[in-house]
Design a protein around this nucleic acid. Structure first.
Length: 539
RNA sequence: GAGGAUGUAGCUCAGUCGGUAGAGCAGCGGACUUUUAAUCCGCGGGUCCCGGGUUCGAGUCCCGGCAUCCUCACCA
């Protein structure tokens, strides 16, 4: 009798669970020996079938020496033909494989277990590989075992799991129901592993620095605050590892890198998750230029890896000309040399006047409405008359020119970059680069370059500041410009200055947004699609 | 923070003008030893996101709320 409770489908599965138990079989399986992935099983057929077993079939006394395998997988499809049951299994190898359970050929109680198998169950099949009339490689089960029960009905076998929210919240279903999801995360894992290999090959040592910090620094961002009970003090999740990695340079570690999470208490959108993965690297006696070479190398070789994976080909066989990665409506060219343009040149090209032409910059800022938020800030701080918007003339002098130049730059110049060509913007203004060494030839400019790919900022590169006096002064300037809320967690890092006084070698540094790079390489428009468990509001 | 869209069966989705809640797959019963989204016969399954309101009557209209997505703002 059909169960008319709301949990009809679960009840049916529980009934099948009991059918398996009644056979004297534990439905949730045990350790299993000799299993091969479905992809390897298929490969075993291709390798073994042509030579051995076909040679045997043609001989006078054919023996059944078809390759025998043991496979495990989740049941995606089931076609019960009465005394012969067909199923399609899926595992994490990125392949599906068909299995047939015949009443005649399968050892007891395998056939009865197969009868009681529901879509979504995990099963084990052992037997020879064969090809059906239609040419499909199939495990002809001599034994069939239950490995785990799925009490929950699976998503549609046609469409998979489409609901975006469910895909993020129930990634454990998304991963096996939607092959594309598994593809993205296999690529992500391989890229990060490959980056480690590339970094080690260049002599960089991986380190781990504090994620729980008493004094969050190294970037301009609001931190998460938490509490350390043992000492009864507030501590912070790190916003960047930079100040600790530089301490390691002082200590004599010449080339260090860290791949780990940063936490920033800010907006959540398609490009920002509260926690995200960053590669940060520092090279003693390098500079911005060596770092630029490094990120270009890492990005290009990561692209090569992803292309090789998609082809099932060797990484060395993929030429630079094939590194055109689809991203939405465009293709991003990772194979050609990355382009370079200076901050001021890009500004001039996009705006039609120089970044140093401050009258026109301020006028443009006012035209764009950029000044409004500063007027609001000033009003909130009581530095301007309340209820009235300060004019550009009044704001000028209270807001740094470089900040306004940069607002105009980000609004008007950055979007004009060719999204199909990864591009370094070089020679940023020193005033907005507090941890970077000013250029000796022009102290107004910093030895800093930012890599943009597909319209997204992927990585900044710096020639690091190692003069403790200059660094201390820049810290002071930065703190002076902060409002009350920010200054409660932004402090002058005395120990970092003390470390610089010990002497840090000249160095290049960079930070690469790993999630964003993976987005580019896997054609995902949202950072949530490259994070296994993106942050979600609690249900 | 503002605006827009979405929320209906386990999954994917229809639902017209306000008038008894629909389909495919999944599920249940039956048949079937080479099927490929198996097929054939039969059957059951609903907090229409939540809470109010209008109405004789609300999945549908109105108000409030929640969640997700998109755009913008904020934010390196």
């Amino acid at each position: 009798m059909p169960d008319d409770s709301p949990h009809e489908q679960e009840a049916a599965r529980l009934a099948n669970l009991e059918r398996v138990r009644a056979l004297g079989v534990y439905p949730y399986g045990t350790r299993a020996e000799g299993l091969v992935s479905l992809a390897r099983a298929r490969a075993a057929y291709d390798a073994g079938a042509d030579e051995e077993h076909q040679a045997s079939a043609k001989s006078e006394h054919p023996v059944d020496n078809r390759p025998r395998v043991a496979v495990a997988g989740r049941v995606m499809l089931k076609r019960d033909g009465g005394k012969l049951i067909w199923m399609n299994l899926r595992d994490g190898s990125g392949d599906d494989l068909q299995i047939a359970v015949s009443k005649r050929d399968c050892a007891d109680p395998g056939f009865e277990i197969a009868k009681a198998t529901d879509l979504g169950d995990i099963v084990i099949g052992r037997g020879p590989l064969m090809k059906t009339k239609a040419g499909e490689v199939t495990v002809w089960a001599g034994a069939f075992e239950a490995a785990s029960k799925s009490l929950t009905p699976p998503p549609s076998k046609h469409t998979g799991l489409q609901d975006v929210e469910l895909r993020y919240r129930q990634r454990y279903v998304d991963l096996w129901a939607n092959p594309e999801t598994l593809r993205v995360f296999r690529a992500r894992s391989a890229v990060i592993s490959h980056i480690r290999t590339l970094m080690e090959a260049r002599g960089f040592m991986e380190v781990e620095t504090p994620m729980l910090q008493a004094l969050p620094g190294g970037a301009a961002a609001r931190p998460f605050r938490t509490h350390l009970n043992a000492l009864d003090i507030d501590v912070f999740m790190r916003i960047a590892p930079e100040l600790y990695l530089k301490r390691l340079l002082v200590g004599g570690m010449g080339r260090v890198y860290e791949i780990n999470r940063n936490f920033r208490n800010e907006g959540v959108d398609k490009q920002h998750n509260p926690e995200f993965t960053m590669l940060e690297a520092y090279e003693a006696f390098g500079d911005m230029g060596t770092m630029i070479d490094l990120t270009e190398h890492l990005c290009r070789e990561s692209a090569r890896l992803v292309v090789a994976m998609s082809r099932g080909a060797d990484i060395a066989s993929v030429p630079d000309t094939d590194l055109r990665m689809p991203f939405g409506e465009i293709e991003i060219d990772f194979g050609s040399p990355f382009q370079r343009v200076s901050y001021r040149a890009l500004f001039q090209r996009a705006l039609g006047f120089a970044a140093t032409d401050l009258d026109r910059v301020w006028a443009k800022a006012e035209e764009l409405g950029i000044l409004r938020k500063y007027a609001k800030h000033l009003a909130e701080e009581g530095r301007a008359e309340e209820g009235r918007r300060a004019t550009a003339g009044e704001l000028r002098g209270q807001v740094a020119d470089a900040i306004v130049v940069n607002e105009v730059f980000e609004e008007c110049a950055e979007p004009t970059l060719d999204h199909t060509r990864p591009t370094y913007i070089t020679d940023y203004p020193s005033a907005i680069s507090p941890l970077t060494r000013p250029k000796p030839s022009d102290p107004e400019l910093a030895d800093r370059a930012d890599l943009f790919i597909g319209g997204m900022e992927i990585a900044p590169h710096y020639t690091e500041l190692n003069d403790p006096a200059v660094q201390a002064e820049k810290f002071r300037q930065q703190l002076a410009g902060l409002d009350d809320e920010e200054s409660t967690f932004r402090n002058f890092d005395e120990d970092f200055i003390r470390a610089l006084k010990v002497g840090m070698p000249p160095a290049g540094g960079m930070g690469l947004g790993v999630d964003r790079l993976v987005m580019m390489l896997t054609n995902q428009r949202s950072i949530r699609d490259v994070l296994l468990f993106p942050f979600m509001r609690p249900e």
